[in-house]
């Protein structure tokens, strides 16, 4: 059975890109904002979460905190147009497995996911 990934980004092209790039190996579930992502993550089982930070409704960092309350071990990868520490974005490194800055290098992302959860 394929492993399940939750992809959350409010930019539709980014979601499409990630789905197209990863769906050969994984099952991809998309969320377009932090609120949807949170309710999905709390309700269903995922092997890994890919999360943008700056999003409407529920901010990515807040969503991550909430997910961590429920699940201490699930790997979370942040994808952001900001760099960590830039514009007051402080990420608790213990909470996230990786911080990938846009533009995303697709093969590097795939390698990172493989390293974290395998196929």
């Amino acid at each position: 059975m394929k492993k399940r990934l939750l992809v959350c980004d409010d930019e539709e092209p980014i979601r499409l890109l990630l789905t197209e790039s990863l769906q050969d190996i994984y099952d991809i579930v998309e969320a377009s904002n932090g609120k949807d992502a949170l309710s999905l993550a709390l309700r269903e089982h995922f092997d890994l979460v890919i999360m943008d930070i700056k999003m409407p409704q529920v901010h990515g960092l807040e969503a991550i905190e909430r997910i961590r309350e429920k699940d201490k071990r699930i790997p979370i990868i942040i994808i952001s147009a900001y760099r960590p520490m830039e514009d007051d974005i402080v990420v608790k490194t213990s909470n996230v497995a990786a911080f990938i800055t846009k533009p995303i290098d697709i093969s590097a992302l795939r390698a990172k996911i493989f390293e974290l959860i395998g196929e």
Partner: peptide, 13 residues
């Protein structure tokens, strides 16, 4: 960076 990600990613695809 967002549209760049799209352009870069889709051109690879």
């Amino acid at each position: 960076r967002n549209p760049l990600t799209a352009i870069d990613g889709f051109s690879q695809l």
